[in-house]
C-alpha cells in the first residue's frame, strides 16, 4: 500500500535531492560560493564550452587565470571579452576594473568588446604591491562585476588573498598570467578555479580571400576544479557599426550606410542592442565556436574568383 506511494515520491524527489546534496557539498567546500545564484555564473556565451564547465560557465566569486600561448594579446582579448560579458550580465549600471601597468589599451578597440568609458575603470599601478592592493580592494568592495589584473609574479599568498577577496565581495577575479609557451607551467598554476590558455590559430592557407575574417583563437582549458580539461577553437566576431561581421560585404555595406557621417562613428540607426541600464551602445562582439574550414578547394577557389570579380567590378 505504501510502497508505490513512496516509490513515486522517490522518483519525483530525486533531482531535488541530488541538487540539495550538491548544494551541501558546495557549502562544505566553499561557504561563500554556495550563496551564489545560478545567474551569477559568468558564461562565455558558447554553449559547447559553457556546457563543459561544471558551473555552466565560470564559477562565481572566484579566481580564474588566463595565459597567452605565444603572445599575450589574444589572452587580453579573451579577458576583455569575459569582462564585457560580466558587465552585461549584471544589467545594472556597474563597472569592471582592469588593473595593469602598461597603458596601451585602446578605447575604440575595447568598445567592440562592450567595454566603454561608462563601465570600465582602469587602474594604472606602478608597483606590484599597489596593483595587487587595487585588485583586492576592487574585489572586496563588491562594487565591481569583475576585476582583471596583470600582476607580474604573484606569490601563492597573493593569489590566495585574491581568491578570498573574490569570495568576500562576490565578484569574479581574472588574472592575466603572462605568456606560457608549450610545455611550461604558468606562474599561477594551482590557484583559482580554472586556468585558460589562449593562442592564435594560423589562417587556413586555402582561404585566399584577403579579408582576414574574425580572430580565431585556440582556447585551452588547462585546469578546471571539479571538471575536466578541454580545448576549443573559437572565433571572436567583432562588431562594426553595431553589427556582427561575418562577411566582408557586410563591412562595405555598413561603411556605405554611414558614408555621410563625418564623425567616423555610426549613427544611432545602426545600433540594435540595449543593455539593461537602457544605455544604447553598439552590440559588442561575441565568441563563437569556430566552424571547420571549408576544405573543398573548389569552394575556396570560387570565393577567390568572387573576390577577384568584385575587385574588377570596383575598378571598372
Amino acid at each position: 500500500m505504501t510502497m508505490p506511494d513512496s516509490a513515486g515520491r522517490q522518483q519525483s524527489a530525486s533531482p531535488d535531492a541530488l541538487a540539495a546534496l550538491q548544494h551541501q557539498i558546495d557549502r562544505l567546500e566553499r561557504p561563500t560560493l554556495a550563496k551564489a545564484k545560478p545567474g551569477d555564473v559568468l558564461t562565455l556565451g558558447v554553449p559547447e564550452i559553457d556546457g563543459h564547465l561544471p558551473w555552466g560557465g565560470l564559477a562565481p566569486a572566484s579566481l580564474h587565470a588566463i595565459s597567452g600561448a605565444e603572445s599575450l594579446t589574444p589572452a587580453i582579448g579573451f579577458a576583455a571579452a569575459l569582462l564585457g560579458r560580466a558587465t552585461r550580465a549584471s544589467g545594472a549600471k556597474r563597472c569592471v576594473l582592469w588593473c595593469r601597468r602598461g597603458h596601451d589599451l585602446y578605447a575604440p578597440g575595447l568598445s567592440s568588446f562592450g567595454l566603454t568609458a561608462a563601465n570600465l575603470i582602469i587602474v594604472n599601478a606602478v608597483e606590484e604591491r599597489d596593483l595587487l592592493w587595487a585588485m583586492e580592494e576592487g574585489l572586496r568592495s563588491g562594487a565591481m562585476d569583475a576585476v582583471l589584473g596583470e600582476p607580474q609574479v604573484p606569490s601563492p599568498t597573493a593569489l590566495r588573498r585574491l581568491q578570498l577577496a573574490a569570495e568576500t565581495g562576490g565578484s569574479t577575479a581574472l588574472l592575466l598570467d603572462g605568456v606560457m609557451p608549450d610545455g611550461e607551467t604558468g606562474r599561477s598554476i594551482g590557484a583559482g578555479m580554472t586556468h585558460w590558455r589562449v593562442g592564435t590559430i594560423a589562417a587556413p592557407v586555402a582561404a585566399l580571400d584577403p579579408w582576414p575574417g574574425p580572430s580565431r583563437w585556440r582556447l585551452e582549458l588547462l585546469r578546471c576544479r571539479g571538471g575536466t580539461t578541454g580545448s576549443w577553437p573559437v572565433d571572436w566576431h567583432e562588431t562594426i557599426g553595431g553589427e556582427e561581421i561575418a562577411h566582408r560585404e557586410q563591412i562595405i555595406k555598413i561603411r556605405e550606410e554611414h558614408a555621410n557621417d563625418n564623425t567616423g562613428t555610426p549613427s544611432r540607426r545602426g545600433q540594435g542592442i540595449e543593455t539593461g541600464s537602457g544605455t544604447a551602445f553598439g552590440a559588442p562582439g561575441r565568441l563563437r565556436l569556430a566552424q571547420p574550414v571549408c576544405d573543398g578547394s573548389a569552394a575556396a577557389l570560387a570565393d577567390t574568383g568572387g573576390a577577384a570579380e568584385r575587385r574588377r567590378a570596383a575598378s571598372g
Binding site: 594579446t73 575604440p108 562594426i240 553595431g242 563591412i251 562613428t265 555610426p266
Partner: peptide, 13 residues
C-alpha cells in the same frame, strides 16, 4: 554617438 563602435576594425592595443 561615440558608443556605437568604430566603423572599421580597431586594435585592442
Amino acid at each position: 554617438a561615440l558608443d556605437g563602435g568604430p566603423l572599421a576594425s580597431r586594435p585592442l592595443r
